[in-house]
Amino acid sequence: MLLVLVVTFMFLFPFLWMILASFKTQSQIMSKGSFLFFEPTFNNYKSVFAEYNYTKYIINSFVVGLLSTFFALVLGLPASYAIAKYKQHGLGLVILIARIIPGISFMIPWFIIFSKLNLADTYTSLILSHMLVGLPFIIWVMISFYENLPSELEEAARVDGCTIQSAFVRILLPLSSPGIITSSILAFIFSWNNFMFSLVLSGDKTKTLPIAVYSFMSYSEINWGGLMAAAVIITLPILVIALIMQRYIITGITAGAVKG
């Protein structure tokens, strides 16, 4: 029990420090004696939205995250079903390798391609680049779900007059909803926290939250209060989603891990 408390404290302490620092002035953050006892201020949060226009960055992050996850599901669910149905395990391995390859390997080619197509600093370039992370993950997670579903379900639907496509949409998709929820949530989180692709491909119009944090860092100083307030704003939506969907995530991961 003591070990659990120690490990929990080690994980929660940086988050606690971040929240407390977001309500402090610069001098209070630097002071050793004002960790818990200080006069809180909301100026950091006011400056985040009033001076740094964080509402725009939040909208950009939601647009990119939701659309990249949606299109990854549209492409990934049929692909994972086909791989599982026709036992294309070699193709599944190739997709897994694409997920393992460091994202930085794609940055320069993608920047050149999107620049030539005049797609730099657009939602299109960010959505496609974020799909590079979410799409292989969704496919790899969902393959195990479709492998575990009894083939008799599809055969019964075909006997009743369904095509392969309608059987997939009407029968198999609803049954695989735990995996869909789990993979889509995690893919959205990957997109929300993505830094590298946004750093290279985004601009003033499409800047996302992880890139906007740089606004609090300059050559001469770092605005720690504003930086911590911005970090809380970045973390809060993901934390809320994780807490609300925790049951579905655990169910989906467990169901996908059990075979037979």
Results as ranks from 00 to 15, higher is better:
Leu75His: 04
Ser34Ile: 03
Val200Gly: 04
Leu209Pro: 06
Glu51Lys: 10
Ile250Glu: 04
Phe70Asp: 07
Phe106Lys: 05
Met131Asn: 07
Val48Asp: 00
Phe62Gly: 09
Phe114Lys: 04
Lys87Ala: 10
Leu186Asp: 09
Val232Asp: 13
Thr251Tyr: 12
Arg170Ala: 03
Ile83Asp: 05
Ile233Pro: 05
Ala120Tyr: 09
Pro174Asp: 04
Leu3Glu: 15
Leu239Arg: 11
Arg158Leu: 15
Gly92Gln: 05
Glu155His: 11
Ile180Gly: 01
Ser215Leu: 03
Gly65Lys: 11
Met142Cys: 00
Ala79Lys: 00
Leu243Thr: 15
Leu119His: 07
Thr163Cys: 13
Tyr219Pro: 02
Val4Ile: 14
Leu91Asp: 08
Val141Ser: 08
Pro14Asp: 10
Ala157Thr: 02
Phe190Leu: 11
Tyr57Leu: 12
Tyr52Arg: 06
Ala230Gly: 10
Ile108Gln: 07
Phe70Trp: 10
Thr254Ala: 10
Ala229His: 07
Pro102Ala: 07
Pro237Ser: 07
Thr122Asn: 12
Asp160Leu: 10
Arg247Cys: 07
Asn193Trp: 07
Pro174Cys: 11
Trp17Lys: 14
Glu155Ala: 09
Lys24Thr: 07
Glu147Gln: 12
Val169Leu: 14
Gly65Val: 13
Met1Ile: 10
Ala156Asn: 09
Ala82Val: 14
Ile113Lys: 05
Val7Cys: 06
